[in-house]
């Protein structure tokens, strides 16, 4: 069976249409995700306006080195993902697998670095609660947002890793034809994860240092 025929699924009559649907559906989902993070960023901004000083002081305590390195890692992974998806579409098997694997490696690296950062944060007393080291009460709110935002983003990274790992594994074993629209859809999702970080990074790491 040719890859095209194998990639075609019910209820579609043509692969072109099916591909269109996969991207379109993913865009709709990204619209939904945009409101999820949009609401969160709005809530953060409201609190920042209410407590400018506490937020500036608390923002100064985040670990900008880890944050910046991670930004670079994640942006690069998005590039690798774009290469992987485009290569899959063009039928370049080696390049596609390379791009996808590199994406996975960078994504895992992101989480590992994030893990080091989180544990350093906890050691420093930056988790709201008994051991919290900052005095202004609203600093606790800043760090509540910090943990929630990075945590929720981390969950999205994890979901992305699972999906990309799954389709890469299938492609590697030859079970998923390169024509499958899943690569492009996964790439779209991965770029969203990336863009969200592009907003979180200045809000959490740079805001307190301006």
């Amino acid at each position: 069976m040719s890859g095209e025929a194998e990639a075609l699924r019910e209820p579609w009559a043509s692969l072109r249409r099916q591909r269109e649907a996969a991207s379109f559906g993913m865009w709709l989902f990204l619209g939904s995700e945009a409101l999820l993070f949009g609401g969160l960023i709005l809530a953060f901004s409201v609190n920042r306006l209410l407590h400018p000083d506490a937020f500036a002081g608390a923002g100064h305590e985040t670990n900008v080195v880890y944050g910046t390195v991670n930004t670079v890692v994640l942006l690069t992974s998005s590039l690798a993902m774009a290469v992987g998806a485009e290569a899959a579409r063009a039928g370049l098997r080696e390049l596609a697998l390379l791009g996808l694997s590199l994406t996975l490696a960078l994504a895992v690296a992101f989480l590992v670095i994030k893990g080091f950062e989180w544990s350093a944060d906890i050691d420093e007393g930056l988790f709201p609660g008994q051991a919290f080291k900052l005095a202004p009460p609203a600093a606790g709110i800043f760090f509540a947002f910090y943990w929630f935002m990075t945590g929720l983003h981390g969950l999205h990274v994890t979901a992305g890793i699972s999906v990309i790992a799954w389709i890469t594994w299938q492609a590697w074993r030859g079970e998923r034809p390169l024509e499958s629209p899943a690569f492009e859809a996964a790439a779209l999702y991965w770029h969203l994860v990336d863009i969200v970080w592009v907003f979180l990074y200045p809000l959490l790491y740079l805001g307190g240092r301006s």
Binding site: N47, L50, P137, I141
Partner: peptide
């Protein structure tokens, strides 16, 4: 225990 809406710390339940 992330105090996002906690009025004791200046959080806003109306949010």
């Amino acid at each position: 225990g992330l105090p996002i809406f906690d009025p004791a710390l200046g959080g806003d339940p109306l949010l």
